[in-house]
Amino acid sequence: METLHLLFNAITVIFIAATMFAAGLGTTVAALRSVFTNIPLLVLALLANLVVVPLLSWGIGMLFGLPAAAFIALVLAASSPGGPFGAKLAMVQGGDVVAGAAMQVLLATIGSLTFAPTANGILSASGVGQGVSLDIAALVGTVALLQLLPFAVGLLLRHCATPTARAWHPPATTVSNVTFLIVLAGMLLGNWHDVLALLGSLALLAGFVLAAAAFAAGTLLTTGPPVRRTTMGGIAAVRNAGPALAAIGIAFSGQPAILGALAAVLLSGLAAALPIAAVLNSRRNRPPTTRRAR
């Protein structure tokens, strides 16, 4: 069992690194500059991910009357932006991968700093849970190693060796796609008992509703064409599990109930976000004649 756990962790690392590397290979410095110099886009994305989505989790948790463990898991997930699945959703929907990948890395980095005070504030105000204390340097280092570094290497290759970057982009995308499916299957198989245990509660529905609401908020609170807007929606819909898992291990002594609820929230969130991305992709790839006929 321990071997399978290590193997799953290794595949997850490969998925994150391959996804960010592929995103970097498909990015130009000029395109990246256009994202980071777009102040309205940055401000709105930060507002949506760092303020609106955490507040949505608080409201949804209270509305559904979630038990303490599920409420804590929902708030921890919502307080942690920049999940690596965000860049993958941009690819799945045929969205603005450059803006999506850049925003994901930025949010993951900033989220490493804001996670603890955001989660603390909501849990304290709601009277649920306890103080969340984390090693901020370790979180930032993890983001830099798994997300920022592969993206930067891919971007450097695209800038300095464009033919090589174009040749490597398809296989890197294939690795990302294959490992993505393996990670999804591993999450389902590895946490099926936790998910089944929560079928009688509203935790799964809360995670689904939070992701759908976050997708809507991310899409509305942004600028640019529809392709960029829905990409920002996908970025907001999926959260970064790393800080949440660390918080459960450190601040909540690895309580199984909270871990199970977190797995359920993350999986139900993907169950909401993936179909939206797939529908968007099918509409964007529909032949022009078909669109006119409709």
Rank of each mutant, 00 (worst) to 15 (best):
A237R: 06
I235G: 02
R284T: 04
G121S: 14
M91Y: 01
I16V: 15
G26T: 05
M187P: 05
A31T: 08
A48H: 02
P163K: 08
L198T: 13
R166W: 00
L220E: 08
A30V: 06
N191A: 12
P40S: 06
L205W: 05
P171D: 01
L148Q: 10
L123D: 10
G59K: 09
V75I: 13
P170N: 10
P117G: 14
A77C: 11
L56Y: 01
R286Y: 01
V175C: 01
H193R: 14
G83Q: 05
V75F: 03
A211Y: 05
V97W: 00
M20R: 05
V29F: 05
F252V: 02
A78Y: 03
A271F: 00
V140F: 15
F8P: 00
G26P: 00
R286H: 01
A264R: 01
G186C: 11
L181N: 11
N38Y: 07
V29T: 14
A70V: 00
A73P: 01
I72A: 06
A217G: 05
V92N: 05
A22V: 07
G94V: 07
G224F: 08
H169K: 15
I258H: 02
N49Y: 05
A31L: 09
L106H: 02
I136T: 15
G269M: 03
G154I: 03
F15W: 06
W58C: 02
N49R: 04
Q104V: 14
T231K: 01
L32D: 02
A167F: 08
L148N: 10
T118P: 06
A293Q: 13
I276L: 15
V279A: 15
G190W: 00
L44F: 11
L184C: 13
V29L: 13
M62A: 12
V132P: 00
L41C: 02
F36E: 01
T118M: 12
A185F: 00
V143W: 02
S201G: 15
G129W: 10
G26I: 00
A273D: 04
I14H: 09
H159T: 15
F21T: 07
Q255T: 10
A161V: 13
A77M: 13
T164G: 09
R229T: 11
V13A: 14
